[in-house]
């Protein structure tokens, strides 16, 4: 039996310990904001925060999550999340949207550590999040805008 918190609520999982966290989030918890893109840590669509750091949930066996805190796109909060959300909406970052919850989880994690990121910092944090609609330029702009907004 695996016990963890999901967006602040205590949850348990009693199935196969090798089940990827992504499947638990989507199929058992029915939180479908986190997406499946590749299943092998190559696209970033499944990004969540595990104990405050980005984690690709598709390659995270649920057994390794015991005692941890998981935050998904549905539960992300705080000043960075608010600033990112506003910046995303303001310039309509998403195209189809499929990659976007992963992009946002990475962007928020970046801003939590680096409040005023350079282009190189953004590359460093975001290079693992692919976007088949190529919204990369708007993502970069929105991260800069969010950083500026937080600065006040």
């Amino acid at each position: 039996m695996v016990t963890f918190t999901l967006n602040g609520q205590e949850r348990t999982f009693d199935g196969d310990p090798d089940t990827p966290l992504l499947w638990v989030i989507r199929d058992f918890e029915k939180l479908t904001g986190t997406k499946y893109g590749c299943g092998v840590a190559q696209c970033g669509a499944c990004t969540v925060h595990l104990d405050g750091m980005t984690r690709r949930s598709c390659i995270t066996p649920i057994s390794t999550v015991d005692g941890s805190e998981v935050i998904t796109i549905e539960g992300i909060e705080g000043p960075e999340a608010k600033a990112v959300q506003a910046a995303w909406v303001a310039i309509d970052v998403p195209q189809c949207g499929y990659c976007q919850s992963g992009q946002i989880m990475s962007a928020v994690a970046l801003l939590q550590v680096t409040p005023k990121p350079s282009d190189a910092d953004i590359d460093g944090a975001m290079a693992g999040n692919l976007c088949r609609c190529a919204t990369y330029h708007r993502i970069r702009q929105a991260i800069h805008n969010a950083a500026d907004a937080m600065e006040g």
């Binding site: 750091m53 994690a109 680096t114």
Partner: peptide
């Protein structure tokens, strides 16, 4: 690795 995508992301 870099903040936002440290090695333990994967």
């Amino acid at each position: 690795g870099m903040p936002g995508m440290t090695c333990n992301t994967c």
